[in-house]
Amino acid sequence: MKFTVSQSSLAQALAIVSKGMGSNASQPIISGVHLIAENGTLELQTTDTTIFIRHSIPANVDEAGETVLSGKILMSIVKNLADAPVSVEGDDHNVMIASGKSSFRLNALSPEDFPSFPEYEFENSVELDSDVLQTMVDKVYKVTYKDNSRPILSGILTTVEDNTIRLVATDSYRLAVCDTNVDTSNAEAFRAILPGSVFHEVLGLPGMTEKILIGITPSQVVFQFGNTTFIARKIEGNFPNYKQLLPKSCTTKVTVNVADLASALRRVSVIALANPSVRFDIECDAKLMKLSATSPDQGDATEYVNIDAEGEDLSIALNYHYVNDCMNAVSDQDEITLELQSAMQPGIFKSYAKVNYLYLLMPVRM
Rank of each mutant, 00 (worst) to 15 (best):
D171G: 01
N306F: 07
K146E: 05
A15R: 07
G22C: 01
A64M: 15
G204R: 09
E312W: 03
D48M: 04
V78P: 10
L74W: 12
L81T: 00
A353H: 10
S154I: 01
G71K: 15
Q134A: 04
E161A: 15
L360V: 03
I214P: 00
R166A: 09
K139P: 04
R54G: 02
N24E: 09
F349Y: 04
A343E: 13
L10S: 12
V86G: 02
E66Y: 12
D171I: 00
E312M: 08
T46G: 03
K19W: 07
I152P: 02
L133A: 05
I57P: 11
I193R: 02
L106A: 15
D162I: 08
K72P: 15
V202E: 01
L81W: 00
N94S: 12
I30N: 00
S23C: 10
S116F: 11
V222C: 00
I16M: 13
L291P: 08
A301N: 02
I271Y: 13
K354I: 12
T159V: 04
V86L: 03
D300E: 14
P247S: 12
L109T: 01
I16H: 11
A232G: 08
F52Q: 02
Q333C: 12
L106D: 10
M1F: 08
K290L: 14
K211C: 02
L361N: 08
K72A: 07
L194G: 00
F117W: 13
Y352P: 05
P111Q: 09
A353V: 04
E236V: 11
L288M: 11
L318S: 01
E121I: 05
A37L: 06
E161I: 13
L153R: 03
G65C: 08
G90F: 05
F223V: 00
P363C: 00
P151W: 02
T251W: 05
T217C: 09
G299S: 03
K79A: 15
I36S: 15
N319H: 05
G207T: 03
N60V: 11
S87A: 10
E201W: 01
C326L: 06
G40R: 06
E283S: 11
I29M: 00
I30G: 07
A309R: 06
T217N: 04
S23M: 11
I156L: 01
D183Y: 15
A343M: 02
K287I: 08
E63L: 08
K211S: 04
